[in-house]
Design a protein around this nucleic acid. Sequence first.
RNA 1: GCCCCGGUAGCUCAGUGGAUAGAGCAGCGGCCUUCUAAGCCGUUGGUCGGAGGUUCGAGUCCUCUCCGGGGCGCCA
Length: 650
Amino acid sequence: MIRSLINRSLQGHLQALIQAGQLPDAAYPPIQCEAPKQPDHGDLAVPFALGAARFAGMNPRALAELLVERLRQNPLIASVEIAGPGFVNLRLSPTAYQQALNAVLNSAGQSVLRDAAHFGRPSCERPERINVEFVSVNPNGPITIGSGRGAAYGSALCNVLQAAGHTVHREYYINDGVNSEQMRQFALSVRALKLGTEFPEKGYKGDYVQAVADQIEPQGDPDVIWWQQEAQALMLQRQRRDLETFGVAFDTWFSEQTLHDSGRVRACIDELEAKGIADRQPVRRSLKLGKKSVIEDVIVEDQPVDEDDAAGSEPTVWLRSTKLGDDKDRVLRRKDGRLTYIAGDVAYHDDKFNRPANADRLITVLGPDHHGFIGRLNAVVAAMQMPRVAANAEGEPLSEIDAKRYTSPAERDACQAAAQDAESKLLVQIYQLVRFMKDGQPAPMRKRDGNIYAISDLIEEIGAQAAPQADREEQVRIGRDVARFFYLMRHHDTTFDFDLDLAARQSDENPVFYVQYAHARIEQVLRRAREEASSLYPDSNAVNGGLTAAARDLHEREKQLLLQVCALPDEVALAAEDGAVNRLTNYAMELARAYHGFYDTCRVIDTDAPEVSQQRLALCVAARTALQGVLELLGVSAPLRMDRPAAPSE
RNA sequence: GCCCCGGUAGCUCAGUGGAUAGAGCAGCGGCCUUCUAAGCCGUUGGUCGGAGGUUCGAGUCCUCUCCGGGGCGCCA
């Protein structure tokens, strides 16, 4: 925002220098400003000269001098100096702040998700249609606190991508395949509880299983498949409800079984066999990997063929995923005819790329136990996308190792191209383990009675402890806000400890309340202004009118607040690029800090100084816009007021 | 054996190859007759696990190594 304003200026200055022949025309790194480490270095710092010196063939300070000459002419810049090895430190003019503030105010009251003109939305260079699949747990239990991280991360990631200008499709893949062994066990457990039949050895216990059993009404003596479908439908209902409570919504709930029913899975296998990337040879290949996943050898093992298998049984069908970079070949169809999970995945990924509103790119959010899936999912995508290999094509001869997995140079080239292409189209985001800490000890995720620690339990627990007097709806709101914020505080690909005691504490240690309190404070100020000094209240026209008045040198705290507000689009752009949504929780805390500092030092409502007061009200509105924006992206509410917790009685 | 993640202040963690490595909490000391003190300000606290390397410059990139967490099914 302010930065992009300045960045544009900087680019202009650079071009001018090149055109004037003061700088050689070279492939310079991008010229950009950044927040200085120390506030007393100025409002913004430009490290360009340090990086560009090499390309210009001059020393950094001399290059900085050239820039400084130009910057002195710039009306947005109040002062500029060279510091350290060649930093250019800028102080912005009141005009620059004024312009930035007005720009933010233009999107006050808008949604960063829905309104494309919201200042928090960075301009996206290459908008894409992105399909994001997340959560996708088996419908044999509630959403656990473990998957809760994936739910929080996935939903926030979608918001960020959308705010960055992409078209996002949120998708949940329902693992409802009837040949799933786990679902069969679940169905048998439900049936046992309902009918009092023998409980399966690997059955599911816990109140949620009983709850499903209580709701099921069998007519006659239905088969296991019926039980399975009924049970998973009920479980799915519960999952949807819990996710909704957690602030997670999907555009599509995609059923695995529909792919089997429509014959798509079988058709895909046929296609793969026709291409030669799947076959029925009784061998399995695996890659022997050395350091840095360098392929040291290809191991080929014969698979036993039992002569006495029932007549009519067919050979196992193998996906030759080692040709596509996976470390093992994978079975698509077992010899008893049942299809594996990965067979469904082939059809599923193919489907995502071939819908009317097809995706340019897929993102799949998976838990830490699925880390080994990256290679095979990539192979699955590559297998369907690769062309049939022409038999007579030529290429560099095969190496000794490659000869063990490829039949021809042409096949090798086609496979490697497909694998590479798949890597650019499918991004697997793995989130790491969460440990829930209670009284300094890890809390068990699975209770002894077979019950699971569900996300709904977490929400209720936090809400009830943080606000014992509040009504249920309010407790759920608090529980959801705190849980989401906590999940999102750390980088998704880092293990972290979720401190349940801290989460439930309504104190200054809890960052969620710190951020929300900043918002409540803003609302309070605006309320008071409306009630006690309505002539100063910034309805949109009055704010803009007030700001076109003489620009004033802002207080240091006001500048810091506005700079922080203006950093939102930059943070969104970065998060969309690298998927590090946790930037935004950090940003939210910094923004809140900036506001609290401003609030403490700068009296807003002051009828004796109407112009200053009006500008500060405008700053409040700007801060509110940014806070609401970032909280909307995080899926955390922005409360209009927060009552001070009762002081401990003396 | 291979893969992923982590090791930064007493604790929990930030930290785009750039300046004197930062917050919060805990500790210590201040600030409510004025918009909510769930707040603010000051202060104490560091061999960024270790060793090499690349670079004008490394907590950040590369190699090796030590310690901790997790993963490597014709389960999903």
